[in-house]
Design a binder for these strands. Structure first.
Lengths: 127, 127
DNA sequence: GATCAGTGCAACTCCAGGGTTGCACGTCCC
DNA sequence: GGGACGTGCAACCCTGGAGTTGCACTGATC
């Protein structure tokens, strides 16, 4: 998987191959994706509030948010005693572009293989 | 994460929320991504050949291929005693579209929040 | 100041999954 | 036919990570 083929380099978190790795790993967990949905819908939310809406403890939520933060998918801002988290689209944008480019690469390769196979088949028919 | 917002429904594997789940989980492992790279580069490859190019056993490769197959990212075809695997772009295409749509959704939501905040700020300045 | 609320640190549990090894069966080739 | 090769089944190991609980500190409110 040639991660350098993507346009990733303009955002945070998924700026290189390691960034895409980290984002994909972060997105692989269903609880984390649910967290991202809640954050995107509500703007800024604390871990405690998020935990009220999920069937896991606050501590589990904080652990997941740490993974998401490390991946650049969310950011936290302290307001007094509260830490308010929000989504950050840059890493997701970059990973989406990387995946689109990869899918296009696969499509191109398969189309080329198909053309070669059809040419070989046509050559066989002429013999 | 509103998986139903994507255009996923026209391909295999990532046809619904469960499909995106499975693809993301499949892509989260670095060994599997390396496998996908090798398959995409070479067209059709056996598990044994793949294992020669990776620092893991053939059995590990087969396990990973099973995950990729279940996600719709690869398919296997038996030729005599061999099973030849190749990438299938549809599930990756669908997941890429889903992610692009999600990133756009996040961008839109953040832009709206920013506009609301700026309007509130302007209203405060007029008092 | 006392109480409540949000947070952070840390220890703990447990199991899924990434990986290995062993062995048997079917296919291929000389 | 026999040996080499590719495969599939299955048992096994172990660790990372998803989740829990306990406790202390700080900020907010009355």
């Amino acid at each position: 998987m040639t991660d350098r083929e993507s346009g990733a380099g303009t955002g945070e978190g998924a700026s290189d191959a390691e960034g895409v790795d980290v984002v994909l790993a972060a997105l692989a967990d269903p609880t984390r994706r649910h967290l991202l949905d809640l954050l995107a819908a509500q703007g800024e939310v604390t871990a405690t509030t998020l935990a009220e809406r999920l069937p896991v403890t606050r501590q589990a939520v904080v652990k997941h948010l740490a993974v998401l933060d490390a991946a650049g998918l969310v950011g936290g801002r302290r307001v007094g005693r509260e830490v308010r988290y929000e989504v950050r689209p840059a890493a997701l944008d970059a990973t989406a572009r990387w995946m689109v480019a990869l899918a296009a690469d696969w499509d191109r390769r398969l189309a080329r293989i198909k053309r070669v196979a059809e040419a070989a088949e046509a050559a066989e028919r002429e013999e």
